[in-house]
Nucleic acid binder design. Structure first.
Length: 422
RNA sequence: GGAGGAUUCGCAUAGCGGCCGAGUGCGCACGCUUGGAAAGCGUGUAUAGGGAAACCUAUCGAGGGUUCAAAUCCCUCAUCCUCCGCCA
C-alpha cells in the first residue's frame, strides 16, 4: 500500500510509476478524488460526534424536565451521527479499495518495459562446452530416471500433471540442499523458521497475493484458508500488526517450506520435467529493515543468492527485472538465471524483491525508535528452490554415462562425490 | 465434535451503563536524593487520523446490535485455557 500522504503530495511521481509498470494512471486521480470526499465526510462525522459526546455528558448530569428536553435533542443528534458514520465508513472503504489496487512505486533505477526488457547485470561462470567434452547432454528428466532420482510418471499418476516424486538420490539431494542452505543462512544471521503453509485470508491479502496473483493460489474453501505459494507469506505476516524495536533490525528469517502453485495459464510452458510444478520445497530469505537500509539489504540478499549458485558451481546471470514484470509489491527485483544446457538458455532459479514499506503498510508492521513509530521495509529472496536447483545441478554436472558429480559444497551433506546410476 | 472459562495501555491486573482512553502494580525513561549504587520520592510512559497549537476524533480480541450514552448489556465470529470424546 502506498502512503496516502505521499500520494497527495506527489501525485506525479505515482502517476509516472504506474505508467512505467503499464498500469492504470487514472487510478491515481480516482484515489485523490475519493480521498478528498472521504476526508470531508470524516470531518463532518467528527464534528457531530464531538457535539454528541458533549450532549451525552450533560444528559447524564441533568435531572427531571431538563433531562427530558435534552434527551429529545440527543435522540435527533444520534440519528445524524449514525448517518454520518455510515457515510464515513462507506467512503473510507471505497478509498481503501482504490488505494489497495495501486502498485508499489518503481525504483528509479529499475529498467522500464515488459518481460523482455530486463537488463543483464552480469554473467558468472561459463556454460560448459559439451561438444568439447564429447557427448550430448541429457536433460534432467532422463538423468533423473537413470539415477532413480525423479519420477514424473508416477507423480502424474498419483497427483496429476506437474507432479513428481523425488526418490533416492533426488530426495537426498533435497535434504543436502536444505541443510547447506540453512547452514549458510545461519552464518548470515538468519533465524531458521518452519512456517505454516496453510494461512488465513488476512495473511494472504496482506502480502499481496490475492490481487492479480490470486488465480495461482490454492484455496481450501471449506475452511477459508489458503496454501501458500511461498513462505514469504507466513514470514511477512508473522509480525502482522506488530511494532518491532529498532535495535533488533534488521530481522532476518530463513523459512523452509513447501510451496503450492496452481500454475494457471501456463499450459504450454515447461510441461516436461520439474521446472514448473504445483508443489515444491524452498528456503526463502526474508528481511525486515529500516527503509533507508532497504537498498543495501537488497544487495546483500542478492549476494547470498549468488554465493549459493557459486557454491553449486553453476553458471548463471543476474538480471534486473523490467518494470512491467515486477510483482505489485516490488520496487525492484533481481532474478538469478542458471544455465540449463539442454535448453541452451538461462532459466530463473532464484529471485529477490525489495518491497520497501509497501507490504509492511498493508500488514501493519512498523518499527519504533527514539523518534517514534515508522513503516518498516520488507525484502525477500530465494535461497534455494529445490526442483530447479536439482535440474541445474543434474544437467550441468552430468557425465557422459549419466552419473552426476556432486558440487564440493554439497558433498559433506550428501556423503558422496558422485551420484551413481541405479 | 461436546461442556465450561477467558481475551482491557510492554507484562500482570482493576473496572461490569455516564465520574473511564481507562485506576493500580511491575517494567521502562527522565529528574531529585547519593561519594557511587540500591532503596526512596517526583514526572512521564499505546496507536492511528485531523489541527500551527490548544485540542478534537477513533480504538478495551473482531464485527454487528440495544441506548441520548457501551470496556461495561445482547448477538455472531476468532483466538487461548480446562475437562470429555476422537485420532495420530
Amino acid at each position: 500500500m502506498i502512503d496516502i500522504k505521499f500520494l497527495r503530495e506527489n501525485p506525479d511521481v505515482v502517476r509516472a510509476s504506474q505508467k512505467g509498470r503499464g498500469e492504470s494512471v487514472e487510478l491515481v486521480d480516482q484515489i485523490l478524488a475519493s480521498d478528498e470526499i472521504k476526508r470531508a465526510a470524516v470531518n463532518e462525522f467528527e464534528l457531530l460526534r464531538q457535539e454528541q459526546n458533549v450532549l451525552s455528558k450533560s444528559v447524564g448530569a441533568a435531572k427531571g424536565d431538563e433531562k427530558n428536553a435534552l434527551l429529545a435533542n440527543a435522540k435527533e443528534l444520534a440519528d445524524k451521527v449514525k448517518a454520518a458514520d455510515t457515510k464515513r465508513a462507506e467512503l473510507e472503504e471505497q478509498t481503501k479499495q482504490l488505494i489497495i489496487q495501486l502498485s508499489n512505486l518503481l525504483d528509479t533505477d529499475a529498467p522500464i518495459g515488459g518481460e523482455e526488457d530486463f537488463v543483464t547485470i552480469e554473467h558468472v561462470g561459463t556454460p560448459r562446452d559439451f561438444t568439447k567434452d564429447g557427448f550430448e547432454p541429457k536433460d534432467h528428466v532422463e538423468l533423473g530416471k537413470l539415477l532413480g532420482a525423479i519420477d514424473t510418471e508416477r507423480g502424474a499418476k498419483v497427483a496429476g500433471s506437474r507432479s513428481y516424486y523425488l526418490t533416492g538420490a533426488g530426495a537426498m539431494l533435497e535434504f543436502a540442499l536444505v541443510n547447506y542452505a540453512i547452514q549458510s543462512a545461519l552464518k548470515n544471521g538468519f533465524t531458521p523458521v518452519i512456517p505454516p503453509v496453510l494461512v488465513n485470508p488476512a495473511a494472504m491479502e496482506g502480502t499481496g497475493f490475492l490481487g492479480q496473483a490470486a488465480e495461482n493460489v490454492y484455496r481450501i474453501e471449506k475452511d477459508d484458508v489458503y496454501l501458500v505459494g511461498t513462505s514469504e507469506v507466513p514470514l511477512a505476516a508473522m509480525h502482522m500488526d506488530e511494532i518491532l524495536p529498532a535495535d533488533k533490525l534488521p530481522m532476518r528469517y530463513a523459512g523452509y517450506s513447501s510451496c503450492f502453485r496452481r500454475e494457471a495459464g501456463t499450459y504450454g510452458k515447461d510441461t516436461r520435467g520439474i521446472i514448473r510444478v504445483h508443489q515444491f520445497d524452498k528456503v526463502e530469505m526474508f528481511s525486515f529493515c529500516k527503509p533507508e537500509e532497504a537498498k543495501a539489504e537488497h544487495q546483500r540478499l542478492l549476494q547470498w543468492e549468488k554465493d549459493f549458485l557459486i557454491a553449486m558451481d553453476i553458471p548463471f546471470r543476474v538480471i534486473d527485472v523490467a518494470s512491467g514484470d515486477l510483482g505489485s509489491s516490488a520496487t525492484r527485483k533481481f532474478d538469478i538465471e542458471a544455465w540449463i544446457p539442454t535448453q541452451g538458455a538461462y532459466r530463473e532459479v532464484t529471485s529477490t524483491s525489495n518491497c520497501t514499506e509497501f507490504q509492511a503498510r498493508r500488514l501493519n508492521i512498523r518499527y519504533k525508535d527514539a523518534d517514534g513509530t515508522k513503516a518498516i521495509a520488507t525484502l525477500n529472496g530465494t535461497l534455494v528452490a529445490i526442483p530447479r536447483m536439482i535440474v541445474a545441478i543434474l544437467e550441468n554436472h552430468q557425465n557422459s554415462d549419466g552419473t552426476v558429480n556432486v558440487p564440493a559444497a554439497l558433498q559433506p551433506f550428501l556423503g558422496t562425490a558422485k551420484l551413481e546410476l541405479v
